[in-house]
Amino acid sequence: MIKDFVKGLWKENPIFVQVLGMCPTLAVTTKALFGLSMGLATTFVVVSSSVVISVVRKFVPRQVRIPIFTVIIATFVTAADYFLKANFFQISKALGPYVPLIVVNCVILGRAEAFASKNKVGRSFLDALGMGVGFTAALIVLGAIREILGAGTIFEFPIMWKGFTNWIVMVLPAGAFITLGLLVGVFNILDKKMKTRREIAKG
């Protein structure tokens, strides 16, 4: 059971390994806070839709499963969007049209199709939660790097020395692509190191 949760954090991390759900990942991570908010919204949608889909999985005719999954996901996304607008107005303004785009985040439909439609509620819940947390963590890392270099702050606190020139390119689209590309590379190196260490430990 625990495995279902843990795999989303590292081994099958939706961003660094599967490279899925790119548009929100790249677009909203100009600041760590936005990355966190987008991550939480996505986690909410992936968890609630996975649970619902897992509950109804036996009643859904195979031919129309994709449209039904999509409608369920879109419903939760709308709910999340209105909730943000009602309670976190500033954040929802900053995320703009990228909240509705969670609907087409392939991570969510991917989980529904590959896991929730085949497994019991408990496992689907853990699987979705793991993916959500892994997604959120990656978004915060990306947002933090771009915020530190692009604006000299982290979660709005200035941390760079006086006279630090902001790297404007980091908050531009180009910076998003390049940072994520390099992060994927770093991830691969770390992953390989960990694997060899584990093999050595095994003997």
Partner: peptide
């Protein structure tokens, strides 16, 4: 198929009306 689609559509609409009225 038609039943499933209709049920999902109605439930989704109902939930969203609630959310809408709340927000």
């Amino acid at each position: 198929i038609i039943m499933a689609l209709a049920v999902v559509g109605i439930l989704s609409g109902a939930l969203l009306v609630l959310v809408y009225n709340y927000s």
